[in-house]
């Protein structure tokens, strides 16, 4: 009988203890962050979307080779002598036209391995992490600053230059080559 009343009393009493605790929590400031309106300060070494500063890029392809998932594709075209491509910010002379610098962020694993080998520190991590897309193709970012017309021009220029050079080189020995070629098939 005593146990019966003890049970009833302790049940009732513990309910009130619990209610007191929850009531106190009613006035504890909430820990929620209103995300799109309020954003957390990211840590200093955060790894998010990559950015390439094309002014500094010398097209050395080291980042593409370092990438473990091959998400960076770089194509370069050699410059013609006489063309001035300018200098990078740390004083290196640029020698290549970068006609393609695509990073596929659908593949990117944010390992930051591409950042370290860069001799000019032109590829680095930014704090942008909201870049979801509806189409996977939209996640392929093109960093080249040249217009497509310019890219074609550079390629054609170089091809022309090469052809001219080859022509100039082989001009004295034009005949034998032609002979060889004709005999080949």
């Amino acid at each position: 009988m005593k146990e019966y009343f003890n049970n009833a009393w302790s049940a009732l009493y513990t309910i009130f203890v619990g209610m007191k605790i929850t009531f106190k929590h009613l006035f504890v400031p909430s820990v929620t962050i209103q995300y799109p309106d309020v954003k957390l300060q990211l840590p200093e070494r955060e790894r998010n979307r990559l950015y390439v500063n094309m002014d500094d890029c010398i097209g050395c392809d080291q980042c593409a080779r370092a990438c473990p998932v091959d998400c960076i594709t770089i194509e370069t075209v050699k410059s013609i002598p006489g063309e001035d491509l300018g200098k990078t910010s740390n004083g290196k002379k640029k020698a290549l036209w970068v006609t393609k610098f695509d990073i596929d962020f659908a593949k990117c694993c944010y390992c930051q391995l591409c950042v370290f080998p860069c001799p000019t520190e032109c590829i680095y991590m930014t704090d942008v992490y909201e870049f979801s897309e509806f189409e996977r193709n939209n996640l392929i970012y093109d960093f080249v600053t040249l217009t497509s017309q310019e890219r074609e021009d550079k390629k054609n220029n170089y091809a022309k230059f090469e052809a001219e050079k080859a022509a100039a080189k082989s001009a004295p020995a034009t005949k034998p080559i032609e002979n060889q070629e004709t005999t080949k098939p």
């Binding site: 400031p29 909430s30 209103q34």
Partner: peptide, 13 residues
């Protein structure tokens, strides 16, 4: 709202 504030959340905002 009550559930949210009791769990130190904000609830619908």
């Amino acid at each position: 709202k009550v559930s949210a504030h009791m769990q130190d959340r904000l609830g619908p905002m």
